[in-house]
Design a protein around this nucleic acid. Structure first.
Length: 96
RNA sequence: CAGGUACAACAAGUUGAUGCUUGAACACCGUUCAAGAGGAAAGUCUGGGCUACCGUAAGACAGGGUUCCAUUUAACGAAUGGCCAUAGUAAUAUGAGGGAAAGUGCAACAGAAAAUAGACCGCCGUUUGAAAAAGCGGUGAGGGUGAAAAGGUGGUGUAAGAGACCACCAGUGUCUAUAGUAAUAUAGAUAGCUUGUAAACCCAACCCGGUAGCAAGAAACAGAUGGUUAGCGUCUUACAUUGCUACUGUUUCGCUAGAGUUGAUCUGUAAAGAUCAAAGUAGAUUAAUAUCACUAUAACAAAACCCGGCUUACCGUUGUACCUACUUU
């Protein structure tokens, strides 16, 4: 998936996407580089909360969101912007 | 009032919107209600419980661990109180703290000489010599070297010297008395007994089956293919036995009421113990316990089988007890 799919970068998020009809899967990744267990769990929770906002307007396919080191200092609004940016870049938003 | 010491406690809150995990009820597959991370959940350093394997049980040896004393505890390498040593004016803190007189070993460099002491300079005696000096012997008091030079000071003594002898002092061992459960302390007597190293081997006392860990392990269903005839560190004795066991997937159990928590009373200096009372479902498996907003900027850090300790990290704040100095009375 990392090899075949498309990817898009922003300051706090990296998105990997592979199109597939009838499948809708999502994964959240926060490696040890990001921080300790508390920070990683919090990153994944924030991703999950944001993803549920966009979930209905997304195309089918498999998504992987990867957290970057700067994520823990990013505010909600700028994270939302980044989220929108990577989704648009990849063309996953249905009504973009 | 200033500085310090010890211990303890808390570890955000608010409401609104949108959600998650578990349980219960209703209902009949969605509603309602309830509960939902820590003081260290961390490091994985230790003591156990629990589970499996090493056939079972007992013993010996080997091996490992502990190390001032007493107490506490299920147990411990932990805790409490004390002793000793060191640091601090003190409150207090720190501690790999048995034995060097059971034995063996080791002590770099420097230095003449380093543990059976040892003569380089010096000092003393004597022989040779006119003298300078040389030879032989004595001397550990003086010099210099070193982490350490074989207790210290003064005297007696002597050719010069020496615990060789004496007085006082420091330490050590032994004995006695007193205090203490004891470690030990104090006092007296006595032995001229006096370097360090046990994180060198070793000795003494006490303690210990080993390995793996809940991804342990157990059960059910389904599937497909096999493996081995044996074994704890070693040995001995007794008994028993031919069967034992592995793989993949899913589900259930293991899974949370426990050597537990809180409060009161009593016992104890304390760790802790006894009695009585009260409250109480976190239990997941990519893994819930949130996301956004507001107050004020908020640490370290996320349960994963469960308990006792230890270690390390830490924002902001509060309380209690004590010590020292100064001022006033």
């Amino acid at each position: 998936m990392y090899n075949k799919g498309k990817n898009a970068h922003s300051s706090s998020v990296v998105l990997f996407y592979l199109q597939a009809n009838g499948v809708k899967k999502v994964g959240f990744t926060a490696t040890k580089k990001v921080g300790n267990a508390v920070i990683r769990n919090r990153s994944k929770r924030r991703f999950r909360a944001l993803f549920s906002e966009y979930a209905s307007s997304l195309n089918d396919g498999t998504y992987i969101f990867v957290a970057k080191v700067t994520l823990k200092e990013t505010s909600y609004l700028s994270l939302k912007n980044d989220f929108k940016k990577v989704l648009t870049k990849i063309g996953a938003l249905r009504n973009a």
